[in-house]
Simulated assay, not measured.
Amino acid sequence: MSVAGLPLIEKLKTRMHWHQTRQKVIAENVANADTPGFKPRDVAEPQLDARGRPVGGNLQVARTAPGHLALDQARPGMSERNAARFEVRPNGNAVNLEEEMLRSAQNQSDYQLAASLYEKSLSMLRIATGRR
């Protein structure tokens, strides 16, 4: 059995990939803080089955109007956050930089925790197999 097939390792890998994707989305939100009409987005947390595999499969995106995002621009699992009414600027932008910075810091901390657990799990497996 390979290390990649262990449920704990798979769950940690999925979690780290989710944090990487979320960091990219948060960076896009910050980069578009002055873009008129921009709505901040976030990535839904992965739902995992008992084996550590994502539940739900791939989402299909349908382009029903010419103004919609092209299929290569839309990303499954992403959603626009509902900003409170007072947070939307007159130009329609709803990005709150303080909130995005807090999300970024929390996301980075959570990623480091998952990476540390991943590293410790691999180290423990090496010790168990005598390959220290």
Rank of each mutant, 00 (worst) to 15 (best):
L59G: 08
S109W: 06
D42A: 09
T64H: 03
V95I: 03
M124C: 02
D34F: 01
P40Q: 01
A70G: 15
R85Q: 06
F86V: 08
F38I: 07
E119S: 15
S2N: 08
R131W: 10
M16C: 06
R75Y: 01
A114C: 13
S121L: 04
V55L: 15
V95C: 02
A62I: 12
R103T: 00
L48K: 04
R63N: 09
A4Y: 05
S104R: 10
R132G: 12
E10C: 00
P7F: 00
H17D: 15
S121A: 10
A70D: 15
L48P: 05
K11N: 11
G52W: 02
R15Y: 09
E80H: 14
G130V: 11
V61P: 01
A83E: 12
S123L: 08
A50E: 13
R41V: 03
W18Y: 13
G56P: 02
S123K: 11
I9A: 07
G92W: 09
N29G: 02
A83D: 13
V88D: 06
S109G: 11
T14P: 00
I127S: 15
N107M: 00
S116K: 15
S123A: 11
A84P: 03
A128S: 11
L97F: 12
S2L: 02
K13D: 13
K11I: 08
K39S: 03
I9S: 02
L6T: 08
E45G: 11
K13T: 15
R103H: 13
E119A: 15
R51A: 15
N93A: 00
R81P: 02
E10I: 14
N93P: 03
D110Q: 15
H17T: 14
I127F: 05
A114D: 07
G77V: 05
R22N: 02
T21C: 00
T35L: 00
G57H: 04
S121W: 01
N82P: 08
N93Q: 04
M16A: 10
R63S: 05
E28D: 13
K11G: 07
E28S: 12
I127C: 00
R41D: 05
A105T: 11
E10K: 14
G37L: 07
G130C: 14
R89S: 14
N96A: 09
A114W: 05
N107H: 00
Q47R: 15
V25N: 00
Q60H: 14
E119I: 06
V88S: 06
L97H: 06
A74L: 09
S104E: 01
A50G: 05
V25Y: 00
T64V: 05
N32I: 01
K39W: 07
L113V: 12
Y111T: 09
G130F: 09
E45M: 10
F86M: 03
Q47L: 15
R126N: 12
A84L: 13
S79L: 14
L8D: 07
P76C: 06
L125Y: 04
N58G: 05
G56N: 11
A114T: 08
L59T: 14
V30I: 15
L48Q: 08
A70F: 03
M1N: 07
K11C: 06
Q20F: 02
S2G: 05
G130Q: 06
W18S: 07
E45W: 07
G56K: 10
G57C: 10
G57I: 10
R15C: 09
M124Q: 12
L113D: 00
P46E: 06
A62D: 10
V25A: 09
